[in-house]
Every structure is written in C-alpha cells, then in structure tokens.
Design a protein around this nucleic acid. Sequence first.
DNA 1: ACGCTACATGTAGCGTCTCTACTTATACGC
DNA 2: GCGTATAAGTAGAGACGCTACATGTAGCGT
Lengths: 109, 109
Amino acid sequence: MKADALRGHLDPLILAVVEHEPLHGYAIMEALQTRSGGELDLPTGTLYPALRRLERAGYLQSEWSTVSGRKRRTYQLTRAGGQALAGERSEWRTFSAVIEGVLRPGTSG
Amino acid sequence: MKADALRGHLDPLILAVVEHEPLHGYAIMEALQTRSGGELDLPTGTLYPALRRLERAGYLQSEWSTVSGRKRRTYQLTRAGGQALAGERSEWRTFSAVIEGVLRPGTSG
DNA sequence: ACGCTACATGTAGCGTCTCTACTTATACGC
DNA sequence: GCGTATAAGTAGAGACGCTACATGTAGCGT
C-alpha cells in the first residue's frame, strides 16, 4: 500500500483504536497493525506527531504513567474526539462511495 | 468532503475517466463531477498539474486540437496507464479494506 | 559483562501533492 | 460592451506522512 494513500485518513484510525479503551502510543501502533492484518506499520515519526496533533485539537487527552520501569503516555478519547470520529466515519463513507463510483468501470456516467 | 482526503487517490480517478474514451481537461473535470454525484469539484490548479504529472509518468498521452475556436488538449490512456489503473484499483481495495477494518467498531482485535 | 531484541517516546528536515489565487483567451447571448 | 461558459495554465502556500536520528529501560542468551 502506497504511503501517501493514508494522508488525511490517519486521524480516524487512531481515534477508532482508542474508542473503547485508552492506549499508549506503542500499543496504538500494535493495535493498528493487528486490526489491519499487518498492512499498517506506522513509523514512530508518523504516529507520535499525529498523537500530539490530535491532543492539541482536543480529540485526545493524555496521561503519563510508569509500567515496569517504562514511561508510557496513555491517550484517551475525549467527547470532542468521539464526535470527530463519528464525523470522520461519515466522511469516509462519502469518500469511499465517491472513489468507487468513479473507479467502477462503465461509461454510463 | 475534506480536501486532503483525495491526496494520493486522485490519479486513479483521472485514469478511470479516460479509460474508455479520450477526454480533454475540462471534460475530465465535468466527468468527475458527474460520476461523483457532484462531490468532486476539482480546481483547475489541481487537475491540470495532475494531468501533466500523469503524462510525464507515461500513463497519459496528449494531443492538441481546436474545436470551435477553442484549443483543447485531449488525453488518452496509454498501455502503461491501463496497467497503472489496474494496480491502483487493486490498491484501493486493499486500502479501503484496511480503513474499514480499523474504523469498524468492535474491541475484538 | 556484553550484545541483541522488544518496549517506549520523541524531534528535524524532506518531499509530495492539493489548494487558493491569479492569468490568458475564445465563443455566445443580451 | 459585459457576463458567463468553455479551455488551459502557473506561482506560491500549507499540510502531513516519511526517513533518519536520538534517547532510554527491560529481559534474554551466552
């Protein structure tokens, strides 16, 4: 999968994995990998800045903790983040319908 | 629909609309608008550079003509462009499956 | 003790691509 | 003449994912 394809679609993915339970960065990385069947392997230089961005936007809220000697920053979805996620899901449906409508062969249109 | 969402997905759309018949830039714009149900309204500053790029990549081939006093540059899909389109369609399926797999609610993964 | 892998977080700078805004030019109806 | 549709293009800005680099702990094998 091309790297650029993700552009503009990363945010909802991150919000979705922390929807049901707060997770720290590394765990988010693993969750995305698992849920995508191994397709998604985000470099740290992509994930961590994205998390900061989402927190600045008010969609995530973070808290430091130490687990077995390692520092973790755990991210939790805020109310605004939940609304954003809902909006993103809706936008995704529109977007994918548009792409599929155009990509589908057939001169009808 | 967010503007950035299109990033990295524009090429297959353009290739798809010229798949069955050569079209000039303006007609491609209209075709995309029609096929997307009005969702896609590409600014010329997006479309024309994209067409040049796709031609440089060898996926499109252009030819000038004059129709009722107006100059047109008509783009045609090349063999390489057809292969690229096939690849892009396949990548789209992968990509959309990934997004939907992650976006779909459910703590199972 | 030493090296390796997994865990864990982060920054700096690059490159690419879409967008906004602007430019040029013809045809046609009023 | 003026406005709108048709037709093609460039310049510059902004956003964001990527590569590469930097830092540090825990645990395992030898």
